[in-house]
Structures are given as C-alpha cells and as structure tokens.
C-alpha cells in the first residue's frame, strides 16, 4: 500500500508519514498540490493521499478536483487533513471528491480511524516507506 502525504509543513508531513508507516503504508511526501500531480504523473496512482487544504502554488481543494477528473486516479482514496473546520468547507471538500476529512490538530488515533473508515485493507506487517 502506498500513501502520498501532501502538506506544506515539513513537520506535519513527517508526523503523518510516521503514523501511516506504523499501520503498514509505504509513504512519500510533497509540499504542494502541483508537486503532488507531478509525483503522481511520474510514479502512478497511490492507494491513499492525505491532502492539506492551504498550500502554495496549488491548494488541496484544486488538487482534489483535478485528481477526481482523471479516470486513471479513480481508485485513489483522498483524505483531507486541514485546519479548516467550517461545515461549509467540509461540504465543499466532500463534494469535490474527498473521501474523508480530518481536522487539525489530530492525534494518531484520528488518522488511523480515518484509514479504517476508508476501508483500506492493510498488510499485517508494516512496510518501510521512502521520502521524496
């Protein structure tokens, strides 16, 4: 299982990556939506993308819309992880195609439970991940 963590905060990327690695994902991370699109074009779809909302160059909502318009990425599960906590924002993200939404600040349990909700079947043994 591969996960792409997209967030402009290096610290947040590191924390999210570690949580995902602990449950068995190989993780990769990039700092904005445009870099994420380039990464996907080069490396192919991932099983799960964690997407921040507010990022430079290409924000998370625009990234989600572009991914959802591309049939090659139809199976990718998209979890928005953001400080945005208005219901209207949440609805916008879900309507744009986010599968789930977690508000910052989060704990490891929050992220693990969201992965469970998304129904991603993980291998029993954790897999070491790489960082881009």
């Amino acid at each position: 299982m591969r996960a792409l963590v997209i967030d402009d905060s290096r610290a947040t990327r590191a924390i999210l990556s570690r949580i995902l690695q602990q449950v068995g994902f190989a993780t990769f991370d990039v700092a904005d939506g445009q870099l994420a699109l380039t990464w996907l074009a080069d490396n192919g779809p991932v099983d799960l993308a964690l997407v921040d909302w507010n990022m430079p160059i290409l924000d998370g909502l625009s990234f989600i819309k572009i991914v959802r318009a591309n049939p090659a990425y139809a199976d990718m599960r998209l979890l928005m992880v953001t400080t945005e906590s208005d219901i209207e924002r949440m609805i916008m993200a879900l309507e744009a195609g986010a599968d789930e939404y977690a508000m910052k600040p989060f704990t490891a349990s929050v992220i693990r439970e969201k992965v469970d909700i998304l129904g991603i079947k993980l291998p029993d043994t954790p897999v070491a991940g790489g960082v881009v």
Binding site: M90, Y101, A102, F106, T107
Partner: peptide, 20 residues
Amino acid sequence: TQLEVNRGLPAPLLVKHFKR
C-alpha cells in the same frame, strides 16, 4: 469537541448530523 468528532465519525455524517 473537535477532537471527539474527529475520532471515528465519517465526515459525511458529521456534516449531516451536527452543527458547529
């Protein structure tokens, strides 16, 4: 609290059944 609704609750159910 935000942390409590973050935990285990699918986002579509949060926006449907809760008010901020």
